[in-house]
């Protein structure tokens, strides 16, 4: 009898152990496949505010770097103002880089919302970043995020005042990117586990690829506009048994330092999605 009670006692502890494990792992795995528990992330109000307080202590450490980058970006943009260009030949048409809202021939497709990074990681298998803006500033799930020097990731979870970004340093970012040099495109993956290196998959090996060639976004999904910097080709190696290159990219964004980012709002996203949904389904798929 004593043994039985002892056994049940042990067993009760085991049951508790299994129960707690179940709760923890169920939350964890459901978050991997389907992000719905925003109360369990740093985008909820309490933890978001703790992170904001932490950031107010640490952000000045990178202030210099951030300022330098902003000045650089400012300079680049200033040089694109049409007033800086003179017309050389009357038969040529000036292509204006900056577009005014009032211009009838152009319609604005993308707008950008600036944000401050409260917290980010780069050493995990899936890396996230908290931003200090949320639903009230017009952030929605799935929007693209980039920094001055390259793309960062997509918005994963939003609360009223904060948002959580799943960075490209994750299992399958699957952003379509291309080489500037010859326009061949593929998907962005992260298999290197290093904060500065990512992979470009799906490039066939019939052509050599130049080192340090620029890599930009292709803009197919409507999340990123075409032509945002991603990084530069760092290393090209053949994949055994397949007619593909394994291209490693040195990412433009330094995830160890990034402080200021922009969230991309695609004003015409709904239109594109509606149009693409009219593509008839392939009967073979079903």
């Amino acid at each position: 009898m004593k043994n039985l009670i002892a056994f049940l006692r042990r067993f009760r502890i085991f049951l508790l152990f299994v129960g707690l494990q179940f709760i923890a792992l169920a939350t964890y795995f459901s978050s991997l496949s389907f992000p719905r528990s925003q109360y369990l992330t740093t985008s909820n109000k309490v933890t978001g505010n703790i992170m904001a307080a932490r950031n107010s202590v640490t952000h000045f450490l990178h202030q210099d770097e951030t300022n330098r980058e902003l000045i650089k970006a400012n300079k680049r943009l200033r040089e694109k103002i049409p007033e800086n260009y003179i017309q050389i030949s009357s038969t040529e048409i000036i292509v204006r880089d900056t577009i005014r809202d009032t211009d009838a021939t152009y319609e604005q497709q993308y707008t950008y919302i600036p944000a401050t990074v409260l917290k980010s990681t780069y050493d995990k298998r899936n890396n996230y970043m908290s931003l200090n803006i949320g639903r009230k500033q017009g952030i929605k799930k799935g929007m693209g995020v980039f920094s001055e020097s390259g793309i960062v990731g997509t918005v994963y979870q939003v609360s009223d005042h904060f948002s959580l970004v799943k960075t490209i340093l994750s299992m399958n970012p699957n952003i379509d990117i291309m080489l500037v040099e010859d326009g061949s495109f593929g998907f962005l993956k992260w298999e290197t586990h290093q904060a500065r290196l990512a992979n470009l998959t799906g490039i066939s090996n019939d052509k050599p690829i130049k080192k340090w060639g620029k890599v930009i976004t292709r803009g197919g999904g409507g999340i990123f506009p075409r032509g945002l910097a991603v990084g530069k080709v760092y290393r090209v190696s053949p994949i055994e048994g397949r007619a593909l290159w394994n291209v490693e990219i040195l990412l433009g964004t330094n995830f160890k330092k990034v402080q200021k980012v922009y969230v991309i709002k695609n004003l015409l996203k709904g239109e594109q999605v509606r149009l693409e949904s009219t593509i008839p389904k392939d009967p073979d798929d079903e």
């Binding site: 502890i13 508790l16 152990f17 707690l20 494990q21 709760i23 923890a24 792992l25 169920a26 939350t27 964890y28 978050s31 991997l32 528990s37 369990l40 992330t41 740093t42 909820n44 933890t47 703790i50 992170m51 990681t121 996230y128 908290s130 959580l164």
Partner: peptide
């Protein structure tokens, strides 16, 4: 002590976006 471990792990999870991962390991 199992319950304390779970609570502690979950508190860390909330602050680091790991959704129950720390809690699970600490309960073990």
């Amino acid at each position: 002590s199992l319950i304390i471990a779970f609570a502690m792990g979950f508190a860390i999870d909330l602050l680091s976006d790991t959704f129950g991962l720390h809690a699970s390991a600490l309960v073990v």
